[in-house]
Write a protein that binds this DNA or RNA. Structure first.
Lengths: 217, 217
DNA sequence: CCAAAAGTGTTCTATGTACACCCATGC
DNA sequence: GCATGGGTGTACATAGAACACTTTTGG
């Protein structure tokens, strides 16, 4: 006789953040295994709420960027159980990212280039999330979610270089981002080692999607 | 006392096809309402299998293009029940599309420009699927899934015009698609009203994704 | 020989890319 | 006054857009 298989509906999150000039992902340790943060969907809760609550619990960040990534439901992905995971993809600003969350437990930020072995299919999920992040960065303005409210053009450029993994030309970068008209200068300017840098902020009213190039028109 | 709410996990499909020079979607009538085809996920079945089975059941098409679209799970979307829908997005070739499916019931192809009132949130789902189809058409080669194996360049161009809803320049279209090297000429040529047209087929080994244009580099 | 659809190149414009020097501040 | 990062413009190459006539068949 077969034991009835419980069908489990989980919400997981892949949260990205910048730290020490590298892109990091937040993981949680459970029974000795590193996993994406997640929990069962609340019966009366929207899926985004569950995801958002995870991020608040682990990072203390109240408002974070969040979008649905993919739903994983292969019958073999979790042994002995039918588990469907609706996975969300999040980003938090660099200045809100620190190793102790609101509820410090077995959580840790890992550089995406240096991940531990992940349980179940979570490694594959992170790989896909990373691909999506790079993709989106090229045709939308999600990147700003990784920066604090105010940033210099050099910081912005560095963020792009970190996530895309390639060097960009300073003059072309500045010209194009200013022409795109999605950021605005603020009167503040930040002192550092050399000449002070002007600070900018993202214009919330900016419509920042660009048409993709046609493969063939 | 509350009655326990059953959580229902459904697989739905949005299937697109070409007919009479218009883009159509397949719908099914249930209890007087037009809905996307769907059924409950089988306990031991991959989600794609369930989706694929729907398409076979309604169209008789054995191999169809299929990809995951989005997962809808708002607590209010289906009154009196918590229903999570993992929605797939499919396309079938024009020559396999006819109004009677393998199991002729209350199903019908509707032009996307002329849809009936849909139940639940299914109207919104179709709108999103359509947006995704147009988007994908511009940076990948999914469009070929809507055509029969052999097609003329004029048919190919017409398909693009139908889905994108805009006229394209014949010479530029031909040059670019031939340069992209994703289709190959066949010796066959089809007689019609005027001069015979060369037929082409999609090169299955073609890697047909293009980098998206950067919003800012 | 006429109707109907197939096929074919060139010019102009816009966009992307490569590249090197002066500027403002702190120490 | 020097070290450090901030800020700026131009010339060339590539890709996209606009555009009209000739060709092959059937009737």
């Amino acid at each position: 006789m077969m034991t009835p298989i419980k069908m489990l509906l989980m919400i997981h999150v892949v949260v990205f953040g910048l730290k020490e000039n590298r892109l990091h992902v937040l993981l949680e340790q459970q029974q000795g295994e590193w996993l994406l943060p997640g929990e069962e969907l609340g019966v009366d809760e929207a899926m985004e709420e569950t995801a958002d609550r995870q991020i608040r619990r682990l990072t203390g960040v109240e408002e974070s960027y969040l979008e649905q990534l993919y739903t994983y439901g292969d019958p073999q992905r979790v042994p002995g159980q039918r588990c469907i995971s609706v996975v969300y993809f999040g980003m938090i600003p660099a200045d809100t990212l620190n190793d102790e969350g609101a509820e410090p437990c077995h959580q840790k930020w890992f550089p995406v280039t240096d991940l531990p072995q992940l349980g179940y299919d979570h490694g594959e999920i992170v790989t896909y999330a990373l691909r999506r992040l790079r993709y989106k960065l090229e045709y939308s303005a999600v990147g700003f979610e990784l920066l604090p409210e105010l940033f210099t053009l050099t910081e912005l450029q560095k963020m792009y270089e970190i996530v895309l993994g390639e060097k960009l030309d300073k003059r072309n970068f500045r010209r194009r981002i200013l022409e795109a008209n999605i950021i605005e200068a603020t009167p503040y300017s930040r002192m550092g080692e050399g000449r002070p840098a002007r600070q900018y902020r993202y214009r919330a009213d900016a419509v920042a999607e660009v048409k993709t190039r046609r493969l063939f028109p």
